[in-house]
Amino acid sequence: MSNSLIDIVNITKQYGHIKALRNISLSINKSDFVTIFGANGAGKSTLLKLISLQSRQTSGEINLSGVPYKKLGNAFKRRLGVISHQPFLYENLTAYENLLFYASLYDVKSPKKVVDDLLKRVDLFKRKDDLIRTYSRGMLQRASIIRSLVHNPDIILLDEPYTGLDTVASKVLTSLLKDQLSDSKTIVMVTHDIQVGLELSSKIVIMKKGEVAFNENISAIDKSNFENIYISQVTDKD
């Protein structure tokens, strides 16, 4: 308990009478890379929304280093970066304008230098003054990733980031994630991609019908047999 960064304690989320999450408990340590698998409707995205403060739980508590989320508010949002399958970029602004805009929302110090550095890291510096809508899919994805890093968050949430990526773009994403990991950042990812999940994660969670069905450290998982575990947990056997 003591060394965990994010503590999810008995979370339940209800939409009307429908329970999206039932009594979820999960602790995420600093520098963990947690991958959450699960069928559609298993509650993965709902959980991510609760962790990112986009949504309030019906009951239970989420703590960051022992402090309840409710008390943190914006102080927590400042530490959080979210990458989704949506680009989170304005297509009629240039990459540079987009990044500076988001930097200003986070009150980033010397934003121009930060943005320049990020653009250089993903090879977009030369195209920084082009409109986002002229970008190829891979470029868009890279721009979208650095957008979420503009305020140097130490907790990164990824919501199915590999959806709609070609092989090249997903390789770039994987290497960027490895970079972040070596910066000792804490990452939580929701995905359907088993290979990537196994390659990057330090912890694997499988959700089923709003509950945690499987929760193991990577060292305890037999990778060759994982696909069977995955299939048995994710598909229905009613």
Partner: peptide, 11 residues
């Protein structure tokens, strides 16, 4: 592009 969601994530 989901920008509204992204703005809501900002502090």
């Amino acid at each position: 592009g989901g920008n509204f969601e992204a703005i809501l994530l900002a502090p």
